[in-house]
Amino acid sequence: MVTKATQRKIGAVLAGGLVLGIGTAATLAAWNDSEFANGTFTAGAFNLEGSTDGTTYANHSTAGTAATLAFTLPAGLVSNMSPSSTVYAGFWVRLAAGTTSAANLTASGATADPAATSNSDHLSYAIYQLDPGATCNAASATGTPVASGATLDALTGATAIPLTAGATATDPGTAVQLCFRVTADAALEPSLVTDATWSFTATSTN
């Protein structure tokens, strides 16, 4: 026989059970959600190329693949240099099609044959940036100084040249003509052949 007291106890237990049940239901009903963010990073393209005639461009990225400048005397060939004579050569540079950033171009190095077996110490040079359409010769070899050297293996006064990227992915940037002027001193030794190499570095500005 269930007494009233017993009923109250059962009711208390059930009430307690209901309280526990409500607490458990609240825990299970908690909401949670997540957000994820993803980014894709694609590097832009960057390529500098040069030309000895302003028409045909290629990469000359190492000393072994350096472009051969076509130096000429005002009246004759570079192989006929004599004391105090000066020779000139043009070289065009531009950012290749597909390049996505403008750049600054700077002369970064000059090397030459050893002075003991060449005329590298008897030849000085200056490099200029010419105005569009100008010709690299004795008459118009003036412009913005880019670099110079009292000898062929020296490099002083390097000045950055701005280069623009092409308007579209299929357009190259605007070409800039550099004019190399090499001058022999009065002590130039006859019959010696001297090789010199100049390097340029383009650094993106974007």
Rank of each mutant, 00 (worst) to 15 (best):
V2S: 06
T3H: 02
Q7C: 08
R8H: 10
K9T: 12
K9W: 08
K9S: 13
G11L: 10
A12W: 08
A15V: 05
A15D: 01
A15Q: 03
T27W: 05
W31G: 12
N32R: 13
E35G: 05
N38H: 10
A43S: 15
G44Q: 12
G44Y: 14
N47F: 12
L48G: 07
E49D: 11
T52V: 11
T55K: 13
T55V: 14
Y57T: 02
Y57K: 07
T62F: 11
A63S: 14
T68S: 15
A70H: 08
A70P: 03
L77G: 15
V78Q: 13
S79D: 15
N80E: 15
M81E: 01
S82F: 15
P83I: 10
T86S: 12
V87Y: 00
A89H: 05
A89N: 08
G90V: 02
W92Y: 15
R94N: 09
R94K: 12
L95N: 05
L95H: 01
G98E: 13
G98S: 09
T99D: 06
T100E: 10
T100H: 02
A102S: 15
L105I: 12
G109V: 04
G109N: 12
A112Y: 10
P114M: 00
A115S: 13
S118G: 04
S118T: 01
D121R: 03
D121K: 03
D121M: 04
H122P: 07
L123S: 01
Y125G: 00
I127E: 06
Y128P: 07
D131Y: 08
P132A: 09
A134S: 11
T135D: 07
T135I: 08
T135E: 09
N137D: 12
N137V: 00
A139G: 13
A141N: 15
T142G: 09
T142D: 04
T142R: 09
V146K: 12
V146F: 10
A147S: 07
S148M: 06
G149I: 00
G149V: 01
A150G: 07
A150Y: 00
L152C: 08
L155G: 03
L155C: 04
T156W: 03
T159S: 14
T164E: 07
T164W: 00
T164G: 14
G166L: 07
D171N: 10
P172N: 10
G173H: 01
A175D: 04
V176C: 01
L178R: 07
L178H: 08
T183K: 10
D185I: 02
L188Q: 02
L188S: 03
L192E: 02
V193C: 00
D195N: 14
D195L: 11
T205C: 05
T205S: 13
